[in-house]
């Protein structure tokens, strides 16, 4: 581990030199692939999940998406690379990037889709009923009631997706793409263990930083009435059958994360 520290603190590794990108450039590249994939996956899975949760139809789509989890990420990456890259001409990262992004998007869809549809679908029938009963339209129920209540689960789905994708993007260096994974595979090839360990530390820190950021977003956007984080002094034991479940329980019930 001390070697990793030496590697990480060596200024030479932090600058681009002789066509070799330095650490900041690799981190930025890693972020670009990862966040791009999460953005695409969210753009697809979030509206779909809202629709499935709100209408309570199409649960089979979620089942199929969950089936994607059984696919070996690395095998899929290699397969798509071998199939797709010959058809993408030109230089640059295209031949590496396209198959990688496809795999990353496929990995990111199940947690976002599953958590969104479960979060919206599990909103208490009494709350939905009352919201319709006092005159909200279906759209108002979705946006003003179901989404705020499902928000912890939706964000935790995005968090899972981010972790999944940041990790899988590391593996993408195997087929030749840049990013932090380069240090792991280049270090392995050169038997340079300090570089490998340094890269491992970098990617772990990056994942942790992103997850912490999203946790902060979650804390900031989720209503205390949903999260159970009441201001000191106003807390009172929740009583009665309609009292909310223990704080945090809804999250625990549908945690979708798997390491990658």
């Amino acid at each position: 581990m001390s070697n990793a520290f030496t590697w990480l603190t060596d200024p030479a590794n932090w600058h681009d030199q002789l066509g070799t990108p330095g650490i900041p450039a690799q981190v930025v590249a890693h972020l670009e692939y990862s966040l791009g994939a999460v953005a695409i996956a969210t753009a697809v899975a979030l509206p779909l999940g809202l629709l499935i949760g709100h209408t309570r139809r199409g649960a089979s789509i979620v089942t199929v998406a969950n089936g994607l989890r059984a696919l070996p990420t690395f095998g899929l990456l290699i397969l798509l690379y071998v199939v797709i890259s010959p058809h993408i001409g030109g230089r640059g990262d295209g031949p590496y990037l396209v198959p990688t992004e496809i795999v990353l998007v496929l990995m990111a869809i199940p947690p976002v889709l599953g958590n969104t549809s479960a979060g919206v679908g599990n909103v208490s029938p009494a709350v939905r009923d009352a919201s319709l009963g006092i005159g909200m339209t279906g759209r108002e129920v979705l946006l003003r009631v179901e989404v705020p209540i499902a928000l912890p689960l939706i964000i935790s789905g995005v968090r899972s997706a981010v972790l999944q994708v940041v990790a899988t993007a590391t593996v993408a260096a195997y087929v030749g793409l840049g990013g932090i994974g380069r240090y792991l595979y280049d270090g392995l090839a050169a038997r340079d263990f300090s570089q490998m360990t340094g890269g491992a530390v970098l990617v772990a820190v990056l994942a942790l930083a992103l997850d912490t950021l999203l946790a902060a977003v979650q804390r900031w956007t989720v209503s205390p009435g949903v999260s159970g984080r009441f201001k000191a002094g106003t807390a009172q034991a929740a009583l009665g059958p309609a009292g909310a479940a223990r704080p945090g329980a809804p999250e625990a019930a549908a945690e979708e994360g798997v390491p990658a």
Partner: peptide, 24 residues
């Protein structure tokens, strides 16, 4: 548990030898 979860598997595989003293 959440912290351990954030560590990408490849990173963990690579770091293990220096923690356990095993071969790569």
């Amino acid at each position: 548990g959440g912290l351990l979860y954030t560590i990408p598997s490849l990173a963990l595989f690579v770091v293990m030898p220096s923690i356990l003293g095993t071969r790569i």
